[in-house]
Design a protein around this nucleic acid. Structure first.
Lengths: 215, 215, 215, 215
DNA sequence: CATGAATGAGGCTTCATTCAT
DNA sequence: TATGAATGAAGCCTCATTCAT
């Protein structure tokens, strides 16, 4: 399923190493100027090898984008999986997940932005693979919700579960996308606290005990 | 503040008309292939005039992007303003706003996507202007919240208000950004209903009366 | 049938003129260094316009080769048609045709060499069209033979006619291909005289009346 | 006279063996895609060794072409020499030579085509050597003609002899060059028969006894 | 005002050749 | 000797922009 970017080089270990260098360079440049404004030469130079060498490890410029997106998704997913960890009783588990997810978005802001802004430039063949990765992340949050449901802490239908998985993921990503504005008012921790509250109890519950909730 | 895209042509009426044609053509093409993959020639052809004429109404390709983003922001803002309208008592007003906002995102999905995906290609000079437009939209939602607060339907601090304005806007945009996945499970109306619930009451309140909320 | 090389330019007259310039430049360069060793930039410079302009009149480097081959074939065919003219009684007509054909090969040696040496670099799509042109030239010679046959000067079966048409054409081309060697010993006129004799009467008839011819 | 292609390797036997492999691979590839479209890497891979090893046995890509042309010329010459063999009385000897020559062209069509189409890509230094090989082949046919002359079967001046040697060689090559068209109508044997007739007696003698031949 | 031919900088990619292992 | 990773010059082509008509 994962597209296999062809190489001229055979040494697997070398491929891994060079690719890591290449991806690091590309992420840096894409962050600064975007995929289209970055030239292959710049990527090669930043990665520390010649243009010829770059093309020993990829076949097209688009391959670089694919490798970058693939790598970031994997890293984000891995970190998410590690942070979420289904620990804590009841709703605590969800809170931890949200906090972890925001932290990942905070730590990897540059990468996350690159991924979401440039993935659209992938070819028709690669795009589905990447979109699927996005759904895998949604799935991770569904697992958290499932856990809470099994603990009896939440009561959700299947549809609600899907809805909330997207909902929570988007709200966490929001920190990455809107930090330029939000960071003027909130620290990550404040943001996280507000977000947990908003997700769990909604806006109306803010100190309004007498209001007729969802009558 | 709004950058003035220079023209060779003087006739104001003509400028308006040609720009409208130009923007329409550009939005169509940007939707299909993105800003960078679209050539100025294509824009001219799609708009129905020659490349020479195109350059009578803009100075650089980036001007087209600026005009497009500006135009879409204005349209989205206008529609939002019209839909929101601060009508309804108490929390109804907020519900109407959310519903209206989602509808706008649904109606203008293509435009919204173009705007958010390509705005990053604007120059350092134009970007702030566009980001500011984004904040104006946030402000619109803050106004709604203010209204609810004044009606006594909500109780929010200034910070909470800012947070929720972003929060709500992002969740509405989510429909535009994730329709490729969400639409498999939800209709716009379902999505809207779930969203209103989620915003107002959060996830934990879903039929779980006995749970000790935020003790 | 003739492939239509696409242009960006619309003015038909201009296309004709520029193409003529382009072809002239290309023939000169291809003659000197061959198709593969000639760069598009060199063609543009030699033709007197910029690389950008060159690409307004063609889409690929191969288009240049196609235009060149097409043009040369047309010129050679036209000259052949003009020279042959089915004039003269009996076998005189054939002699005139051979003489004319050799003259064409002599006058257009460079072009003929380019055409036969580079045509193989045409794409699978264009090649058949060019090969067909070759067959048209064979056809011209078949017409001459037909004429002689109708005059009663020659007696050939259909197969013989086809054979001799190729046979004569190849022998005329021989002057173009082997002038580097033949010209050391023969002038064109000598060559023509020898060739006519060889074609008409063969080698054995050279002053050998007593030999038992093909008994 | 024969250019000495330099090697890093000393072992003569190894050189011979590797070169044979290399030439075989190159002929195959040149036949398929021509010299310029074939890469050195492809040659190495097809020959069964690495690019590094290839360059132990040649110094430039052009060396490969030189080796190929040289090898083919030698093989063709050898086969020609073997087939011709100056056997047969009188004109039979010539007939046998023509038949043999056509057979060689038929058997080695691919090689012959490669040789004549790519030799022009040789450098100014190598070209004369290869052209000289061509003249050696002409010489072989001159020898045949000489033999016939000595037998009294033909009467030719020196100039006529040179002319006919080229003439016959070209007509035999014609089978290789035009088989794409001729083979639709003729088998090799038919072609050979027609050709022998044409060379010996010319076109006019075809059943036209009363015509005043070159009076 | 409108047109579209002309321009050329610059991007992506290939590939012959080298050289350290 | 054999290998194959590294190199970078050089090729093809695109496209934003200009300007004469």
């Amino acid at each position: 399923m994962p597209k296999n970017v062809e190489t001229t080089v055979k040494d697997e270990k070398l491929i891994k190493q060079r690719r890591a260098e290449l991806i690091k360079a590309a992420v840096k440049l894409f962050t600064e100027k975007g995929f289209h404004r970055t030239t292959t030469r710049e990527i090669a130079r930043e990665a520390g090898f010649s243009i010829g060498t770059l093309y020993e490890y990829i076949r097209t410029k688009e391959d670089v984008l694919y490798l970058v997106c693939d790598d970031i998704y994997n890293k984000v997913s891995d970190r998410l999986r590690a942070t979420i960890a289904l620990k804590g009783d009841g709703v605590e588990c969800l809170k931890a997940a949200v906090a972890g997810c925001v932290k990942v978005m905070d730590d990897m802001q540059d990468e996350v932005l690159v991924m979401y802004q440039e993935a659209k430039s992938l070819s028709k063949e690669s795009l589905p693979y990447v979109l699927n990765k996005e759904l895998e992340m949604v799935k991770l949050l569904e697992d958290v919700l499932d856990h809470c449901i099994r603990l009896g802490a939440l009561h959700l239908t299947e549809k609600e579960k899907e809805f909330y998985a997207h909902h929570i993921l988007v709200l966490c990503q929001m920190w990455a996308f809107r930090r330029w504005s939000l960071a003027k008012t909130f620290t990550v921790h404040e943001y996280t606290a507000y977000l947990i509250d908003a997700i769990l109890y909604g806006i109306s519950v803010r100190k309004a005990p007498s209001i007729d909730q969802k009558s």
